[in-house]
Amino acid sequence: MTAAPQPATLRPTDEIEAGHSLWQDAWHRLRKNKMAVLGGIFIILLTIASFVTPLVASDYYKHQNLDLGATPPSHAHWFGTDQLGRDLLARVLYGGCISLSVGIAATVVSVVIGVLYGTISGYIGGRLDVIMMRAVDILYSLPFVMFVILLMVIFGRNIILLFMAIGAVEWLDMARIVRGQVQSLKKQEFIEAALALGLRKRRIILRHMIPNVLGIVIIYSTLIVPSVMLLESFLSFLGFGVQPPMSSWGTLINEGAKSMEECPWLLIFPGLFFSASLFSLNFLGDGLRDALDVRASKD
């Protein structure tokens, strides 16, 4: 379009931009994104609180006080207590610990699968690539969550299996993104140079490809964490995920929903924390993506 002027091309060449590394640039841009920064701060505080609480007061969350019963928020119990007299704040923080742990562990599983799958598909290319990507397309269209439920039903509700099952579901996006990245890298000269030097394919993948797709993997990992947490809570809410006496936000919300007529705070506080975490993680992930996105790095 010729209508819009292009100031960038009109700018005299005497202004040479000071050299910034990509990461410095990204950090600068990220800091300007208020929502991402707020999200990041919230997540850091929440993580500290969630992981420290079980350490300093390991039993407090399951400390019952049947005489007290369910009470609304008060001075002694900021978020109130549940029917068994357990302090809801402690339970929410403990639930956060579980939810975040599952989120991170399952993300690691899915990232490993996705990166390997995507790298192989993108690197080898040809027919294998076509088949592997077609498989991803097909998997996309399957009711995957049902398989996870099927797995949980059949093999018992065990938290390790939960990590694995969720990880096995959430790797598809990562595989696609990594494949795209690898394909474009493959065409670049330093890879050709490595090939010309006679390096083995395995070595090229390990030493050149993987380090170079790392940036994009990190960004998308931050976006996988919230969707993994969502899936975990979804399963827990239905009763297929984390089992009592352990409790994640999903199970807390489930319990809260059952008794919301009498004690709405049991629903509201876990729901609030869960939504706020998803919110923050999404904003942080989007912010990171915008900040690091190579396409937008020179506007």
Partner: peptide, 18 residues
């Protein structure tokens, strides 16, 4: 040359400037 304003002149009179 490009950017000299000739197209913008036309778009302005047509009311097509975004």
């Amino acid at each position: 040359e490009s950017g000299s304003g000739k197209s913008v002149t036309c778009y302005s009179l047509m009311g097509l400037i975004p």
